[in-house]
Write a protein that binds this DNA or RNA. Structure first.
Length: 600
RNA sequence: GCGCCCUUAGCUCAGUAGGAUAGAGCAACAGCCUUCUAAGCUGUGGGUCGGUGGUUCGAAUCCACCAGGGCGCGCCA
């Protein structure tokens, strides 16, 4: 799509963007030599108070200084020019220099055919055209099935990726498998224990645990199958002749491979059930094995960004066992971090950070303009060093943003559900999905800003009341579909895009249409802010407007959508209903929630 | 001790890229309602946007300091 096609499309679908162009054109008449950076600050935004009209612009105020004229004077001149616009009914200067615009109802109504012919593509933006973004999310240790703690990041990341795609970005969804660290070695030992059990080893768990460096972790039963599979494939060849612990070199890589593969199979299935489908799975272990991590460290070394040094102890709180030690450090302080960060452990292997630098370098090499990591809030302290690393690696050309997800507290029967493996109340993602379903999980996870803690009340997400946004939004869509089904017997609905909508003039109808008009703007703002939860709130408001309109039919039968003896009126109303359904679907699509056709 | 995030109605939370008189749901109060597909509808009360300064024509929003909560703080990921 070229630039003029693009702006034509914007004029057609985003009424606020269109009016902004109108205002800028008028402003160019009033203030001929306005600097572009001032023009960029001109906004046309929806009026908060209906008494102010439909929209307002700050054009006069932001340009007053550059024009060396008082805002009121510029506003008055703008009003003169703007009243000539075919979209505008009235324009008036108000307050400290706003220009309030009241649009002709037709300007809003004309959107309905556009929505109906665009379908769910309505709201697509071109903001991100030409920008490649990588969204990395979930990235759980492959040490067991996914639990609730992983779930929020998965949903937020997935919805954000969808949102960015809708806003025109070229998006890659990625999962980074943290399969290289000590945790995975511990996992392999745990699987090896299940293997020994499977081949009938006489060792007791205690005897085995005493031989494991760091002790036996991951006692979950989910590894039993892995052990049995190993036994089937390798018989007793991974153990000593008397079925004891063989030298780790003989089995550790095999068991690791096998176990990680088994865990990832489970995790992929969990993700699939959650409706998450990532494009790329990157392995930390493969990255290290390929030598990429070492190469990056060498490169940074050559750039003078790595040195051997001793860190100061944390101020005010010196750990008991603190002692000065020389370490391999990355100069992250040169790029805004608080302290330089270690890259090597004392055993010579890389820290997680070192490998993550290599991983992000790899993503930069793949040509992304923006890297987004979805992280748990407990990784907040990690963000500045990663930001520093990306800056150093890309010479500042690649942007990095981290979206932090706060903890989710599961509530049931008014009581918090404790997350404890020992107590057996460890809630897996699969349990949650079975209990409330994918759609309720996804929607609910998006009903809070991701950096706010959230209560997930298992009883409330299934409630059929207005206070449950999942229900309220789905119900609005179901009602739309219900009306359209009912109307199918009276009038055809397939060509509503060409229906005359001039009769839609009541306040609740126009309120709903104005809400629909906000959709492109909402998509764009949410995408740029990396805040997918805004979509959920928009849909809730949209649903409220729709239910309001529906409820009017309760009091007054002539206000119902279907009027058997007024076909033209009916078709106009149905066009509005159909457009509402389209926008709800469009929003649910971003959230990864399946719209329902009926509530049963 | 330091850094990051947070603090908005009784409760749970929004607040659209600094805009006008800060919004919604629940709860409370007062009415209505038995339905084109229903699990409700209308109205009312309720706020020093944690506090104090500052920048600005204009601040819940940006800056500084203070108070309270969460997270993190040399080879865990």
């Amino acid at each position: 799509m070229n630039a003029s096609d693009r702006s034509a499309r914007i004029r057609e679908t985003d009424i606020y963007a269109r009016l902004r162009e109108t205002v800028l054109a008028a402003l160019a008449q009033v203030v001929p030599d306005l600097p572009p950076e001032i023009a960029a600050r001109v906004e046309v935004s929806p009026a908060k108070d209906p008494a102010h009209g439909d929209m307002a612009t700050n054009a006069a105020m932001v340009s007053a200084k550059a024009a060396r004229q008082p805002p009121a004077k510029i506003a008055a001149a703008l009003v003169q020019h703007l009243t000539a616009s075919p979209d505008i009914q009235t324009a008036e200067a108000a307050g400290p220099g706003f220009v309030n615009l009241r649009l002709k109802p037709q300007a809003f109504r004309a959107l309905l055919p556009v929505i109906l012919s665009s379908g769910e593509a309505y709201g697509d933006a071109t903001t991100g055209t030409g920008t490649k973004i990588n969204v990395e999310y979930v990235s759980a240790n492959p040490t067991g099935p996914m639990h609730i703690g992983h779930c929020r990041g998965a949903v937020v990341g997935d919805a954000l990726a969808n949102l960015l795609t809708k806003a025109g970005f070229d998006v890659t969804k990625e999962y980074y498998i943290n399969d290289a660290g000590a945790q995975v070695t511990a996992l392999a030992w745990a699987a090896y224990w299940r293997y020994l059990q499977a081949i009938g080893s006489p060792m007791t768990e205690e005897e085995f645990a005493n031989e494991v460096p760091g002790g036996l972790q991951y006692k979950g039963e989910y590894l039993i199958q892995v052990g049995q599979a190993l036994a089937t494939q390798y018989l007793a060849s991974l153990a000593t002749p008397d079925l004891g612990i063989a030298s780790p070199e003989l089995w550790i890589d095999t068991v690791k491979d096998h176990t990680i593969h088994a865990m990832m199979t489970e995790i992929r299935e969990d993700l699939r059930l959650l409706g998450v489908q990532q494009d790329i799975f990157s392995s930390e272990r493969a990255l290290v094995a390929s030598g990429a991590a070492d190469r990056i460290i060498e490169k940074l070394h050559a750039d003078g960004l790595i040195y051997e040094g001793v860190l100061e102890p944390p101020k005010g709180k010196t750990p008991e066992d603190w002692e000065p030690r020389p370490q391999t450090l990355f100069r992250s302080t040169e790029f805004g971090d608080d302290v330089d960060r270690p890259l090597r452990k004392s055993d010579g292997s890389n820290t997680y950070f070192a490998n993550d630098i290599a991983y992000h370098a790899d993503k930069i090499d793949r040509g992304y303009d923006v890297l987004i990591d979805i992280l748990g809030a407990d990784h907040g302290g990690y963000v500045p060093r990663m930001k520093a690393a990306v800056k150093a690696l890309s010479q500042g050309t690649t942007k990095f943003d981290a979206v932090l997800c706060q903890i989710v507290h599961i509530m049931k029967g008014g009581q918090p559900v404790r997350m404890s493996k020992r107590a057996g109340t460890y809630v897996t993602l699969r349990d949650l999905l079975e209990e409330v379903g994918k759609d309720a999980v996804r929607f609910t996870m998006l009903t809070r800003n991701s950096d706010a803690q959230m209560e997930f009340d298992l009883d409330k997400v299934l409630a059929t009341t207005r206070e449950n946004p999942v229900f309220y939004v789905q119900y609005a869509h179901a009602r739309c579909r219900s009306v359209l089904r009912a109307a199918a017997e009276i009038t055809t609905t397939d060509d509503l895009a060409t229906a005359s909508v001039d009769t839609l003039a009541s306040e609740p109808e126009l309120t709903l249409i104005r809400r629909l008009a906000l959709w492109p703007r909402t998509v764009e703002a949410a995408a740029l802010a990396h805040e997918p939860h805004r979509i959920a709130f928009f849909l809730y408001d949209l649903a409220a407007d729709f239910h309001m309109l529906w409820n009017r039919g309760k009091d007054d039968a002539t206000l119902r959508f279907i009027q058997a003896d007024h076909l033209q009126e009916t078709r106009a109303r149905l066009a509005l209903v159909a457009a509402t359904a389209v926008v709800i679907r469009s929003g649910l699509q971003v959230m990864g929630v399946t719209p329902v056709e009926e509530m049963r």
